[in-house]
Computed example of a mutant assay.
Amino acid sequence: MEENRLKGIIDLHIHTAPDVRQRKMNDLEIMEAAVARGVRAVVIKSHVAPTVGRAEIVNRVKEEKYGDTSDFQMFGGVALNRFVGGINPWAVETALKLGGKLVWLPTNTAENHCKKQDKTNWVSVVRDGKIVPELKDVFELIKDYDAVLETGHISPEECRIVAEAARNAGVKKIVITHPEFWVVGMSVEEQARIVKDYDVLLEHVYAQPIGGGVYKKNLETNVEAMKAIGCEHFIVATDSGQTQNPYWYESIKEYIDYLYDVGGFTKAEVDRMTKENPAKMLGI
């Protein structure tokens, strides 16, 4: 029988329906696929709305349907884009009170993202080399709830400023969101430096958009970064859900197979990136 390489894994980055953009799978379909494969947990993400309440409903459905035959859990969070008021501590506090685990800094309305795509009406996290004042309250909430600060689509320089300010504020869990994504544009050397200086984790994902609705796989360059910096500093996630890409369970299986069969990583190394590091972030 083929080994089930998805058993016990955790994916911290999946886009699901309902959404303003068409998605490949909805929340319940993700749950069913995860339970069938023995997946430990996933985090559903939206650029436009908090996902915490949706995750809680899915968990209740899972419990009623599967009881203690599955330990799968779905988690949510909030992305601090224009749609929730930008850097909005009230939105963060509400999401965390409801059980949210991840707080993403602005993604598709981040200043860095908008400038690279010639858009306006962005959300800033840094002004004049310092974090915006509202972030201080956000950091305090993240610290108090032992949540995860994700950097979203901000620039490498902004990531460093944010990471330093967050560490100084007592934030314990910081993840650099897909630094390989061209919008973020963090070189391997910059990734290694921010890991060394601020002890952050690097989330590397399955694929990224390159324009015109086309996506390219990141697997080869992800492996190169993992080998250069060290697996202990990485989280494997898919950032899946786009109609152009495979179904989530196909993406994560292909990614993990690649780590073993092409990357040559050991089970301990793969487990660190797919199970242990994400579990530590979720506190499970």
Results as ranks from 00 to 15, higher is better:
102 L>S: 01
1 M>L: 09
190 E>Q: 15
164 E>V: 04
39 V>F: 09
254 E>F: 06
148 V>M: 02
123 V>N: 11
213 G>Y: 08
262 V>Y: 11
237 A>R: 07
274 T>I: 06
119 K>M: 15
194 I>F: 01
232 E>S: 09
31 M>R: 09
108 N>L: 11
178 H>V: 02
199 D>P: 03
214 V>I: 14
121 N>L: 12
36 A>N: 14
46 S>G: 11
161 I>T: 07
267 K>W: 04
284 I>S: 03
239 D>W: 01
192 A>C: 11
77 G>K: 07
159 C>M: 09
111 E>M: 08
33 A>R: 09
79 A>G: 13
142 I>V: 13
34 A>E: 07
33 A>D: 10
119 K>P: 00
99 G>H: 04
17 A>R: 11
65 K>W: 03
29 E>T: 10
99 G>W: 15
217 K>N: 04
169 A>V: 07
93 E>K: 15
118 D>F: 02
7 K>W: 07
149 L>G: 09
37 R>P: 05
19 D>E: 06
262 V>A: 06
232 E>V: 02
195 V>C: 06
46 S>H: 14
185 G>N: 07
195 V>M: 01
133 P>W: 12
148 V>H: 05
190 E>M: 14
254 E>Q: 14
59 N>W: 08
152 G>Y: 00
179 P>R: 00
281 M>V: 10
117 Q>V: 14
82 R>Y: 08
210 I>T: 05
129 G>N: 06
43 V>L: 04
162 V>D: 01
236 V>R: 04
242 Q>C: 11
94 T>W: 09
15 H>S: 06
52 V>G: 06
118 D>A: 02
246 P>F: 04
29 E>H: 07
114 C>D: 13
65 K>T: 14
234 F>P: 00
69 T>A: 12
192 A>L: 05
145 Y>A: 11
257 D>I: 05
72 F>V: 09
87 I>T: 07
156 P>Y: 08
257 D>Q: 09
107 T>A: 03
150 E>K: 12
206 Y>L: 11
29 E>M: 13
85 G>C: 03
57 I>H: 14
